[in-house]
């Protein structure tokens, strides 16, 4: 790990005044330290934002759940308010990483973490995301890589919380210099390699996430998150699904379905949403919706197994949502 200057910011203004092009903000620090230890990042200065006051709150107000960017994953997993109506978000946090990391990692940092692709994380591979010419995953060990939008760069987006938040239609408040604020849909904030090969989102230099805003779902909505790993204890997902569904009896009124560990961004399964909306949810319609979701997939040599996995997981999740209705 390179050596660096350290500054502990007491306010957003102070944090931004300390920021330079060669600096990095640090909240929980889990991903940043990992990148530095692997020589993927080498900031000359770390601006610590972990001690900023007031950015670890959970508040429902006027039909919007406000989540502070400095909330830890453990705090999100344990919160009764979040679990009551946004259980996909609580479950995504509860099933991410290890208990120790959930105690350290923050929501803001989780959304901005870099991908886990082993070619990206290994300094010996000058991959396309790091400014090189080649996506090594295309011809390499690609069993954990994307099955959608994988031609340029085959990373999967690493954040489970992003999947749940996109399914819930979350927005981010971003604060730039001179207290300039903008609000952006998380789904639009996270970008594909075709938009920016070298980054996974559209955050601007010096900007900080200052609020995460999640609409309150209808009282009858089902909020579900399911993760499939290779083992039960700490593991990354090989497939995950976040879903917000509203039902009228046995008929699906609306569906928001997001596949994780599937694409370089949380993958909105619009084909499945259209296929199931207005239909009675049963094994046949759920199976057809799941098939529709995977119809446009372009698997690589070693990750074709994900198609069957996603199809089964999505069918099961739709039927589970119906069971709870």
């Amino acid at each position: 790990m390179n050596n660096f200057e350290w500054a502990d910011a007491k306010s957003i203004d102070e944090a931004q005044s300390l920021m330079t092009d060669a600096s990095a903000y640090k909240a929980g620090g889990v991903d940043l330290l990992d990148l530095m230890k692997e020589h993927i990042a080498a900031p000359k200065r770390i601006v610590n934002i972990r001690n900023l006051q007031g950015f670890d709150q959970i508040k429902e107000d006027g039909g919007v759940l406000h989540l502070g960017p400095l909330l830890t994953l453990a705090q999100i997993a344990d919160d009764k308010t979040i679990r009551s109506k946004w259980s996909a978000i609580a479950d995504a946090a509860a099933n991410a990483a290890t208990p120790q990391i959930r105690n350290m990692a923050t929501l803001g940092g989780n959304l901005l973490q870099r991908p886990r692709c082993w070619y990206f994380r290994n300094e010996l591979f000058p991959c396309r995301k790091k400014g090189g010419e080649i996506c090594y995953a295309q011809q390499g060990e690609n069993q954990y890589h994307a099955i959608f939008n994988n031609q340029l760069c085959a990373i999967v987006h690493p954040s489970a919380l992003a999947c749940a938040l996109v399914a819930h239609g979350a927005k981010l408040e971003l604060s730039g210099a001179k207290n300039q604020k903008r609000e952006v849909l998380l789904e639009e904030f996270l970008t594909l390699p075709s938009v920016d090969l070298h980054r996974e989102n559209s955050i601007q230099s010096g900007e900080l996430i200052t609020d995460i805003r999640v609409p309150t779902p209808r009282a009858d909505a089902k909020s579900i998150y399911i993760k499939q790993g290779e083992k039960e204890s700490f593991d990354w997902p090989i497939a995950e699904i976040a879903m917000v569904l509203t039902m009228d009896g046995e008929t699906c009124k609306s569906a928001s379905i997001v596949l994780g560990a599937a694409a370089p961004v949380p993958h909105r399964a619009t084909e499945a949403e259209q296929a199931i909306t207005g239909k009675k949810v049963d094994e046949q319609s759920a199976g057809a919706a799941a098939k529709a979701a995977l119809a446009t997939a372009t698997p690589l040599a070693l990750n074709g197994y994900k198609l069957a996995l996603f199809e089964n997981l999505l069918t099961r999740t739709l039927l589970q949502a119906k069971g709870n209705a």
């Binding site: 350290w6 620090g29 290890t98 350290m104």
Partner: peptide, 13 residues
């Protein structure tokens, strides 16, 4: 009182 990874925590922090 909370278990964390000391390898991913900076001492200064």
């Amino acid at each position: 009182g909370t278990p964390v990874n000391s390898c991913m925590t900076l001492a200064i922090d």
